[in-house]
Design a protein around this nucleic acid. Structure first.
Length: 540
RNA sequence: GUCCCCGUAGCUCAGUUGGAUAGAGCGUUUGACUCCGGAUCAAAAGGCCGUGCGUUCGAAUCGCGUCGGGGACACCA
């Protein structure tokens, strides 16, 4: 536009038509800028097309419709982008403008080991974290621990029963509300090996406190262990107990009452959340003076604001969706920008065993733990299994099937592409086809449609990453990587990479597949999956 | 009763800021290196995108209804 001396503004768009086969772009620039130059769109488009045709950057330029310009770039434009794709931080950017993002996920109750649902949340949250970080956000992973309140009291009592059992007491009836998994026995036994019968002489309160603290510590350790095995870390574990000790409860209560949104009824203190669109009002403090879970939850979310996060994302199970309105109501009442809080719901996992639905129950101790899953299916396959699905898709999960299917998990297809390239590059080294001092002009030999398509696919990578952060949908990376791996496998089968008779061509192709290897490695890393340089041959 | 999610190939799932012939993996059938890794590739079969109406030049994608499946509606968290 500038060389033609026309005025223009930036609100035109360049689009890649859905029909990728013919590759190419389409732009409405002439239509957007016609008024500015007092010309008819079609006439302006003609001038632009004429100018574009003079440049060798464009392979073909054509007019369409009322002034759309379709054009295709010359191959060499693509060729010259390959070196960029080979940078080991290819795709990273400043897209996020260093905005601070807090991702809260898993946040499982500290009353038992992590289960398959936590594995899904881990795969989702951690990959999203990695991608956020890669494109220039400042993300932060947090696990909220509900280590106070009713359920941890029950936890303590459950341990107590098992402990007393160890000392000869016969527990005729194990209460239905108690936690009944084997891990409770393990915790009791471990505590017993440290303390012996000493605790029996404590006062009940002291004994239960000791049980509680010990159990919480043990379970925390179990959870950290599983997460580490899965490659997931948290920057912070936020303790509810600590929040309570710091006086946050009293603060929240007094702020809400200052905001005139609380009232008393039946000796309890209520929050008038219906004022802010909630279905009904919520109890904050019961008649006996204890607090309901909502208060520390509000306090916790306030810290997310106070800590200066620009984007606040909660990853929750679908059973919490009714909980969001009351939380947002409280934020609104306290004059916080409740729009900043986003909630992603990960849908349930229906657990099957040999085709039959299994109900999981932590209380009854009937759960498939995250540990079992990783041990039996493997970290990489498990992560991919959960990652290639949309967050709000329901999914059926059969452990027996998952084990069997782990050999058929698409993740191996991707990893194999990576390993295969590594193997080819190794062979190239033996053939003395080194890529140092490689003359970029040689790249003109990459003139096959498949080669240009591969380059285009890799050039779309940065945009895919940006979209993932916009939509909070890391599964798109799983899909993308699978497609890229597929394109490589097909290319490999159709063309010979190393051919000693055509050394220059071989070098060009090695150059290309090195770029592919790089993108695969980056993608796998962003998904928390390893990129092996070699793989064991599968038995037929 | 109110609210949330889902319904796409035999199975598991992609594809939704509306665009041309709806895709992949697994499974089924048939083929492929004396040569860079056969965990690969080529090809075939398999679809009223649950269903009806609407908006639109154009709908898997948007709206309303309907059917089917899952879930939530606590002074548990």
């Amino acid at each position: 536009m500038e060389t033609l001396g026309y005025k223009y503004h930036d609100n035109y768009s360049v689009e890649v038509p859905k029909n990728l086969e013919h590759g190419g772009f389409s732009t409405n620039i002439a239509m957007v800028c016609s008024k500015l130059n007092k010309m008819k769109p079609l006439n302006l488009a003609k001038k632009i097309v004429a100018e574009m045709e003079k440049k060798r950057d464009y392979k073909s330029v054509s007019l369409a419709g009322a002034g759309f310009i379709n054009f295709t770039l010359s191959n060499y434009v693509y060729h010259h982008m390959i070196p960029m794709i080979m940078f080991n931080d290819y795709g990273s950017s400043n897209y996020g403008k260093r905005r601070k993002v807090i991702l809260e996920f898993v946040s499982a109750n500290p009353t038992g080991p992590l289960n398959v649902v936590s594995a899904r949340a881990s795969a989702y949250g951690d990959s999203l974290y990695r991608i956020f970080k890669y494109v220039g956000y400042e993300p932060f992973r947090e696990f909220y621990v509900n280590d106070a309140g009713n359920q941890v009291d029950i936890l303590a009592e459950s341990v107590e029963l098992r402990y007393r059992e160890l000392h000869g007491e016969i527990i005729s009836e194990f209460p239905a509300e108690a936690y009944n998994g084997d891990y409770i026995k393990d915790i009791a036994a471990k505590l017993n090996s440290i303390e012996g019968s000493k605790l029996l002489h404590y006062s009940e309160k002291d004994r239960l406190d000791r049980m509680k603290d010990f159990a919480l510590e043990e379970i925390h350790r179990m959870q950290v262990f599983s997460l580490e095995k899965f490659g997931v870390e948290f920057e912070n574990w936020m303790s509810e107990k600590k929040l309570r000790q710091e006086g946050s409860i009293e603060e929240v209560l007094s702020w809400l009452s200052e905001a005139n949104v609380t009232f008393e009824k039946d000796d309890a203190i209520w929050f008038e959340s219906t004022k802010f669109g909630d279905e009904k009002d919520r109890v904050l403090m019961r008649a006996d003076g204890t607090i309901t879970y909502i208060v520390p939850d509000i306090a916790y979310h306030l810290t997310k604001y106070q800590r200066g996060f620009d984007i606040i994302i909660d990853v929750l199970g679908p059973d919490h969706h009714g909980y969001v309105p009351r939380l947002k109501a409280a934020l609104e009442a306290l004059k916080y920008d409740f729009h900043k809080l986003e909630v992603v719901f990960l849908q349930h996992i229906n657990l099957f065993s040999n085709g039959e639905l299994v109900k999981m129950s932590k209380r009854a101790g009937k759960i498939v733990t995250m540990n079992d899953l990783i041990d039996e299916v493997g970290k990489d396959a498990t992560r991919y299994f959960f990652l290639d699905r949309r967050p709000n898709s329901h999914l059926n999960f059969d452990l027996a099937l998952a084990k069997k299917a782990s050999n058929e998990n698409p993740v191996f297809y991707i990893q194999y592409a990576h390993a295969r390239i590594c193997s080819i590059l190794k062979k190239a080294k033996k053939e003395k086809l080194a890529l140092n001092n490689f003359d970029l002009k040689q790249l003109k030999r990459l003139d096959k449609v498949e080669e240009i398509r591969l380059i285009k696919k890799m050039l779309s990578f940065p945009e895919i990453l940006n979209q993932i952060t916009d939509k909070r949908e890391p599964h798109r990376l799983a899909t993308y990587t699978l497609e890229l791996a597929g394109m490589f496998h097909k290319y490999y089968a159709a063309f010979t990479i190393i051919n000693p008779r055509y050394k220059d061509l071989s070098r060009c192709r090695l150059f290309l597949i090195s770029a592919i290897k790089n993108v695969l490695a980056i993608s796998l890393d962003l998904m928390g999956i390893s990129a092996p340089t070699s793989m064991k041959r599968k038995k037929k």
